[in-house]
Simulated scan of single mutants.
Amino acid sequence: MSSTTGARAVRLAWAAAGTVLLIVAWSILAAFYPSILLPSPLEVVAALCSLAASGELARELATTVWRLLVAFALGGGLGIALGLAGGRAAPLAALLRPIMAVLAGVPPISWLALALIWFGTGSLAPIVVAWLVAMPAVFVATLEGMRALDRDLADMARAFGLQRLDMLREVYLPALTPHLLSGLSTAAALTVRVGVMGEFLASSTGVGSAMALARTRLETAEVLAWVVVALGLLMLAEGLLLRPLARRAAAWRKEG
């Protein structure tokens, strides 16, 4: 077994131990409180199974996932495009920095309040707010990557007549990859958190909305079941999107 595989196994073992410890502590605490305040893990699992059996879980999850994908695509795509443009034109970067600082600095709940006024309830409010919150992280990361670019190497590559695709592969990608992955990871987490919060406050469908409805019925086990679903979305964003992207980028660089 290689050292990398061994280190990964150790990390997984510690993560599993931490999860078990959390569940045990939760079970002990739940024994001292009524279910309406703190349901046990088994009650939450039962609520999750009930949601899955009724079809509500799949329906609300599908609604949330497409909203999050749209918001992440908008935030990531525009963040990268504006970061690349700002990295090539210093005046544009100076113009965009304060705008991105405002977008990142305003609390998401404030954007949600405005989105409710502008768009009302529905899909648009959570999508727009998640997009606005996620985009600055990708923009800043891309801009930092452009700053880390070896300008002499880029000039030399142009002098030797490298085509745009080759420039991207040999010059830009190695400099941008670590910054982009960091920015996209932050953006993915923000998109899930803010998107679900937006559904909680400004939508009648989706995981966040279902969580809000369960809260009004005082179904605490169901609320926690939806929390587990939201956490699962965060883990899936990392495991199914960002890690494969990191592996592909590393393979691309090796091929070069």
Score class of each variant (00 low, 15 high):
200 F>W: 15
251 A>C: 05
132 L>Q: 02
112 L>S: 03
193 R>W: 04
101 A>G: 15
73 A>D: 02
150 D>V: 06
231 L>R: 10
204 S>M: 14
93 A>C: 07
91 P>Y: 06
124 L>T: 15
91 P>C: 11
114 L>Q: 08
53 A>Y: 01
213 L>Y: 08
35 S>K: 10
153 L>M: 15
244 P>H: 09
90 A>F: 05
140 V>L: 02
82 L>Y: 03
76 G>T: 02
160 F>H: 12
45 V>M: 09
150 D>S: 06
5 T>C: 08
50 S>M: 04
250 A>R: 15
100 M>G: 12
229 V>E: 07
100 M>K: 14
18 G>D: 05
154 A>V: 09
176 L>P: 03
163 Q>A: 09
67 R>H: 07
165 L>K: 08
179 H>Q: 06
120 G>D: 06
146 M>K: 05
185 S>H: 00
43 E>L: 07
19 T>M: 14
77 G>W: 10
123 S>Y: 06
231 L>V: 15
35 S>I: 09
100 M>L: 12
223 V>Q: 13
54 S>D: 12
45 V>R: 01
206 G>Q: 03
113 A>L: 12
19 T>I: 13
39 P>C: 06
28 I>K: 04
60 E>G: 01
105 G>K: 13
208 G>R: 04
209 S>Y: 10
10 V>M: 10
110 S>E: 12
157 A>L: 04
248 R>V: 14
53 A>L: 09
167 M>N: 01
27 S>G: 10
15 A>L: 14
183 G>H: 00
127 I>T: 05
79 G>Y: 01
51 L>M: 12
220 T>H: 02
191 T>E: 00
102 V>S: 11
64 T>K: 01
24 V>S: 07
122 G>A: 09
107 P>S: 09
172 Y>D: 09
15 A>W: 13
199 E>Q: 09
21 L>M: 13
31 A>Y: 11
